[in-house]
Structures are given as C-alpha cells and as structure tokens.
Design a protein around this nucleic acid. Structure first.
Lengths: 192, 192, 192, 192
DNA sequence: GATGAATGAGTGTTCATTCAT
DNA sequence: AATGAATGAACACTCATTCAT
C-alpha cells in the first residue's frame, strides 16, 4: 500500500499542493503540475495512476501528518494544556502550509470524491485529538462535556477559519498576536 | 446592476446552487445546470453572460441574503443576545440551505476567482454583523475586546464547520441539540 | 434506439469509414475523422457518445445493409440461382464499398470490442442468407448438405478474400472477369 | 538480415503474437508485451529496433513458416492430392495457432503498414503454393484453369474464414468434422 | 545483455461559448 | 424570450521511445 516516496513523487506532490492551493483541485491541471514539478507530464502518470490518485495521496498525507503533529503537540499534556498546544500547532501549520490547509478546507465537506472514505477516516483521526482534549477538560472540571465531537468540530473550525483569514488576507499580523488572541477564547469554548 | 429576477433566472440560479453544492463550482457544467433548470443551454446565455456571472450572482446573493438574515436576527438586540440570535439563525441557514453554504465555504479562501472583490465585500458585510455583536459584548463588560475581526472569523468558523459537520455527516441529530450545544460555548468565546 | 440520421451524422459515419478503411479502426483518430467529415471535433461528440459508438454504428449499419442487399438479391430465387445472385451482389459491394468491407473483414474475428454482441448478431444475419441458399441447394438435389453454417462461412470467405484481393491489389481486372471466374467454383462448393 | 533468435527474442515474439491476437496490433502496447514476455520494457528495444520491427518479424515469420508447412505438406503430391493436404495443414495451423492467424487475417488487406512490401511478398509465396496445386489440377484434367491466382485467394479465403469461424466461435466442434466438411467442397472449387 | 524511470507527442473526451433560427 | 446544433481550446491520459545505469 505505502509507495516508497521517491524524490520525483515528492516533487509532484509538492507541485500539486502548490497549484491546488492557488486554484482548487479541479482547476489544477496535470500540465501545470508537471511544469511546476519540473518533470514531463508522462512522469506524473509513471508515478501516479491518475490525477485523483495524486490528490487522494495529498489529502491523505496532509491529514496524517497534521494528526501526527497534533499527537506530538499533546504528548505529555492533558485537558486545557493539550488544547492550548493544539491551537498553537494548528496555527503554525496554517501559516507555514497555507496551500495545503486551503485544500483540506475546501475538500472537507465534499462527498463526491473518489477519496471520501480514506479522507473521512483521516479527518476523524485529526478531530479525535481535539475531542480527547475536550473530554479531558470536562473530566478535569468534574462535569463531562456534552457532544464532544460537535465541539471538536467547532474548535477546529474556529481555528481553521480564523487562521486562514489571517494567513490569506492579513498575513502581516504577527503570529503571536493571532495565537494570543485565539487561545484563551478557544479554551473558553469548553469551560461550561 | 440589479437584473430583474425572472422565473427563468431564478430556476437557473437554483439549479446552479444544487449542482455546485453537490460537486463544486468548477465541476458544475452548464449542461448539468440547464438540464436541472429545465431550460435549453442557450437560455443560460440569454439570461447570464457566462458561467462566472452565474456563480458570481449565486455567491453575491448568498452572502447578501445571509447578511440580511443576520441583520434581521439582531434587530433590537445587542451584545450577548445578538450573538445568540446570530448563532441560531446561522445554524438554521446551514441546515436549510446546505448546498449554498457548502459553496460559500469552499469559495471563502479562494483568491483566483473573477468575483473575488464583490465576494470579499459581501463576506466582510456578513462578518461585520458578528464583529459588531462582539464589540458590544466587550462594551457591556467594560473591557473592549481585542482583535474583534479575528474573533468574528473564529465564531463564524466555529458555527460554520460544526454546523456543516452536523448537516452533512450527522443530519439525524435534532437542530435543538446542536443549537443548545453550540450557543453557550460560542458566547463564551468572547467573555474574556 | 434508432437515431435520426442527420446529414452531420452521415458525414461523420462516411468519414469514419473512409479513414478506418485506410488504416484500421484503432489507428483512425477522431481528429482525422473530424477533418475528413468537415466538422469540428466537438461535433463528433455532439452526435456520438464516443469513438466506440461511431464504429459500432458503422459496423452495425454495414452488416444490416449488406444483409438487406443479400435479401433483395435472393428475392424470388432459390438454391443455385440464389447463391449465384449472392456472389454477384457481394462482389459488387466489395468493389463499390471496399473501405467498409475491409473494416468488416478486419473486425470479423475480434472478440475484444464493445460491439461484439450486436456485431455478432448482425454477422449471423448476413451469413444466414448464405446458409439458407446452401440448404436449398441440398434440398433441390435431394441430399441435405451437412454443416451448412460452416459452408456458409467458407463461401462468404472465398468471395470476401478473392474479392478484396482483386479490389485492393488488382483493381484493373474487370468485374465481369472476377464474377465469371468465381460464380461457378463457389456454386460447386455445394454440389456434393 | 536474419538475427539470431535468442530465447529473449523468442519470448518477446511469442508475447507479441498472444497480445495482438487478442486485441490487434495497434492496440497491443509495448508494456503489455514486456509484461507478458516477462522482460523489462528496455529489453524490447535492446532486441528490436521498434514495435514495427517486432510485428514485421511476427508477420514475416508467420507467413514464412506457414509457407514452409504448405511446402512440406504438398511434398511428393500434385493436383487434387496436394490441395487436399493444403486444406488439412491450413486448418491444423488455424486451430493450433489461432492468435497468429487472426493477426495475419487482419493485416492481409492493409496497405498502410511499414511492412507492406515484405509482407506482400511473403503472402504471395504462401498463395503460390495454392496456385501451383490449382494449376496442376487443371493440367490433370486437360483444361488449364483460368485465373488461378484469383482462385487461390478464394480457396485460401474459404479455409481461412471457415477455419477461424470454427476456431474462434465454435471451438468445440472436432477438427475431423471441419476437415471432412471442407476438403471436398474446396477441391470441387477447381473441378470446372 | 538488460533494466526501468523518464519523456513528450499524440489520443479520446469535455465543456464554456456562439449563433442561426 | 428561447433554442440546440456546432465549435475548438483545453483537459486527463496513453504509449512508443530514450538513456543512464
């Protein structure tokens, strides 16, 4: 299942992310991707079966790696501390990988793609890290948080939209300001 | 500027929203739209200059009407009460117009469209209603909220993502549960 | 099922036959066909769903019309007279529609095409006319011909290959010579 | 001219025949051939200059070997006996090398190939064996057969088409039945 | 003697747009 | 006010061929 990631494959995936981050997946052409990756179009098809497979790989990797970062960030932390770390690392990801996050944001509610199922699973893994922190906050405070999954989406959405708003439209604002502004409000989401 | 909205135009816009809600704007074809609207393809071009104009109109109308609903909801209310009303009406819109909201969500961070400018203005109007309520909350509490625009995005994003998560992936959950779960946490976002 | 044969459709089919008669179906490109038909490539797809559909139509029509000619030729005749008429009309078809017959000849034993089934049925109809005449010859002579279907193929093949040999490689030989040379030998195939 | 036939070359030619017998020469890809032959694609080009050269070799060898078989079969025989032997050996070849014969059948009237000339010469050699037998039959009977070349094609075509009809569509019929059914009729072709 | 990653011209197909009616 | 046949540029994908190893 797991293809060895040769440098050509990596160059293609990187180019695909850049192009699709600018114009969306459907509008990203294989020609554009090939040119950006510095390879011939044939190489795209030598390394991936189809455009769909390229973006299925992109989205899969994006969420798997995002989840890894989340897991790494919460390591040794629980509850409020964990959530704090999640917001920080998520914002860091948004600003340093804006193109990729934009793709994820645009795909997150589409149900007509060939990759719905694996993408859905990967998405759930990412949200699960938020959900776990939310539950821990409830436990810490002695009152289990209701609907933790829905609240995980809310927290994810708050950071995602605010973070992209900042990264796409007001990138000159320093990250510390954004982080400082968002962390406490997001934590408060769960202090019923 | 404002074209008379004949029934044919309305049928076309309705069809365009349905199709694009299912597959995204780029993947929505003029043929699909014509068939769904029950008119000949030529009629699309009799009523709109281009596909771009159709979707510029769709997005423009979507945000204008959403803003109108927001304004209506906050009428006579301020601060916390206004925000409460905003969350409620936004969730109502998400569940009753999921296709349209999905389109808005997918377009919100794209900067390569012919309609970026008008869409950006319309989006700012919608966010401004949230921002106003946020500022009022700060005033009510005697301490002006910092970065109200960023927090408006966060609130908007929290409701948007949680609402779509519910509407798209778990539509069987009753709306009251979703509203009850989200309102207080979202309000708390701003109670620094 | 039966599409109206507009002049554009007819022009496309005619062009497809010419091109494929020269280079075979697989090597016939949609571009070539469009140019030869004097229409834009898009017109090919407005009138036919695919290249496969074009050639399914070509082959279907070819055999249906060939069968019609066979039926017409044997009308009011039986046995030897019918077979004589079949050989004559088949040779006439070969020389006046060489491109089409070449396509049929090249496809007749392929089993990997989307049109195998309808083509097979149409081919059997054509061979059935030969088979009927063969059976009648047996009856006229009082001894039923064994394996009439196999002999029908033999007669069909004899005329087809000899006729194409003549039409493709020695077209200067007058048709009467070919007809006179082939009719009696072919008849004799069945005079056990 | 004659390359040494290494086992790799033979494996490639065998694979090429199998693939092209299934889907035709144009649709047979070098990748398919390499996989079927169990060699890397580069080996194809190490052993043959091009795809054209592979199939020129295939067709050349096919007809040369077929002619050798014909020559061997008629050795020591003349006229009717020779023709009888030719039909028998041809049917044997058709059933035991169906893929190859299908390729020959599909190529026999094509004039757009790089190998037209050598293939034409080889084809004429094969037909010449038939022609010789036909002439002998005429001599045996004291009246020279007119148009022996055309009749050779007719005999060749009769056996080819009936044989393939049997081999491809009704392979369960025993060979003796087919041979018994065809030999006498084919002989009668020439008993003017 | 053989390999397989890489190539790019060429293929079938799509689709926003036009225009005569 | 509306139609639908026709268009052609652009697209995803294929495949014979090359070449460094």
């Amino acid at each position: 299942m797991a293809k060895r990631e040769t440098s050509t494959r990596q160059a293609i995936l990187k180019a695909a992310i850049e192009i699709a981050g600018e114009s969306g997946i459907t509008a990203a052409t294989m020609d554009d991707i090939a040119v950006r990756a510095g390879v011939a179009k044939g190489s795209l098809y030598y390394n991936f079966a189809s455009k769909d497979e390229i973006f299925a790989t992109v989205l899969q990797q994006a969420l798997v790696r995002l989840t890894e970062r989340f897991e790494l960030a919460v390591e040794g932390k629980t509850g409020v501390d964990a959530m704090r770390a999640l917001v920080e690392v998520f914002l860091e990801r948004i600003v340093n990988d804006t193109a990729l996050i934009k793709i994820v944001a645009a795909e997150i509610f589409r149900t007509d793609r060939s990759w719905v199922v694996p993408f859905g699973i990967a998405r759930d893994s990412a949200l699960a890290v938020f959900e776990r922190a939310i539950k821990e906050i409830g436990e810490e405070r002695g009152s289990p948080t209701p609907q933790p999954k829905l609240l995980a989406s809310a927290a994810f959405g708050a950071v995602l939209v605010a973070g992209l708003e900042w990264s796409v439209f007001e990138p000159e604002t320093p990250r510390t300001v954004v982080t400082d502004t968002l962390i406490d409000p997001v934590i408060r989401l769960f202090l019923s």
